[in-house]
């Protein structure tokens, strides 16, 4: 089991006491593709960040179990965590525009990560970087390696981010809204690339997104979060038979190209969803 979370609770201090943003989330991830879906503020990103202990210092994290490949995240030293972050679990973020260092060339960025985790000479690192850029299907890796982040497109930037994450051969990938900043055609290409790499290398994937149909298209299992809790968990292929009113509501309010509607149905939030 790569990741094991049981009864995770994350809270933040506010003037009126602690606010619990994640309230008892449990999940297990092996070599599979798991999607976490929810609206903004549902706690989906916090859950993933807690697994890498990447939360702001004022956050209070409690869990019965919070383990990555047997390592207890809550009690691990900072040194142990550094051996996990990046090296064994890669994190792909939403917007390549803000996540790539603007003053380094693409080749230098990828080579830096490779060298950090694998050692070796500068020349070796640059060769490895070109090879990684090829693996993420960049057509002209030598030219791209010489360009700077502002000179490449968003889709290309996201490929570069993925190349950087792959450099240390991680066992797990966490992708937090990896394609929400991209166009529909590019979005499909990037997700297909992630899917291929994950299957080829036998990695585990945690895909976080607000887009329910998109996630179920690319994952094996889907967890739906609402107000800090998991309200429904199902196989991606069974999305059409989802029975929780929140999941159904999310699916129903998406405008459809094939089925015209006079009015879109609106999600009527039931307070009971938050407190069962």
């Amino acid at each position: 089991m790569l990741a094991e979370i049981d009864n995770l609770r994350i809270s933040f201090p506010t003037p009126s006491g602690f606010y619990e943003a994640v309230r008892g989330v449990s999940l297990k991830l092996g070599q599979e593709k798991l999607g976490i879906v929810g609206e903004s503020g549902s706690g989906k990103s916090l859950t993933a960040r807690a697994l890498m202990r990447l939360l702001p210092s004022q956050a209070r994290i409690e869990a019965d179990t919070l383990r990555f490949d047997g390592i207890d995240i809550l009690s691990a030293s900072e040194q142990q965590m550094r051996a996990v972050r990046g090296k064994r679990a890669g994190f792909i973020l939403q917007d390549p525009k803000y996540s790539l260092n603007p003053v380094k060339s693409i080749g230098a960025l990828v080579a830096e990560v490779w060298r950090l985790h694998k050692g070796g000479s500068r020349r070796e690192a640059m060769e490895a970087a070109i090879n990684l850029l090829e693996q993420v299907k960049i057509r002209d890796p030598h030219r791209v390696a010489k360009s700077y982040p502002h000179e490449i497109s968003g889709g290309m930037g996201q490929r570069v981010m993925i190349a950087m994450m792959l450099a240390p051969d991680p066992e797990m990938l966490i992708a937090d809204e990896p394609t929400s900043a991209l166009d529909a055609t590019v979005q499909a290409e990037i997700l297909r690339l992630i899917e291929e790499l994950v299957s080829e290398r036998g990695m585990g994937l945690l895909l976080i997104s607000h887009d329910l149909p998109l996630v179920s298209h690319f994952c094996d299992r889907v967890m739906v979060m609402y107000a800090g809790r998991v309200v429904e968990e199902l196989a991606a292929s069974e999305l059409s038979s989802a029975h929780h009113p929140y999941t159904r509501g999310l699916l129903d309010c998406i405008p459809s190209l094939s089925r015209p509607q006079e009015r879109l149905s609106v999600l009527n939030r039931d307070p009971a969803w938050a407190n069962p």
């Binding site: 529909a184 055609t185 499909a188 998109l214 298209h217 999305l239 699916l251 998406i254 190209l257």
Partner: peptide
């Protein structure tokens, strides 16, 4: 056609 295909493909997952 490409835009429409992508849009329909995703819709079918949810139905």
């Amino acid at each position: 056609q490409e835009l429409r295909r992508l849009s329909v493909e995703l819709e079918e997952t949810g139905n």
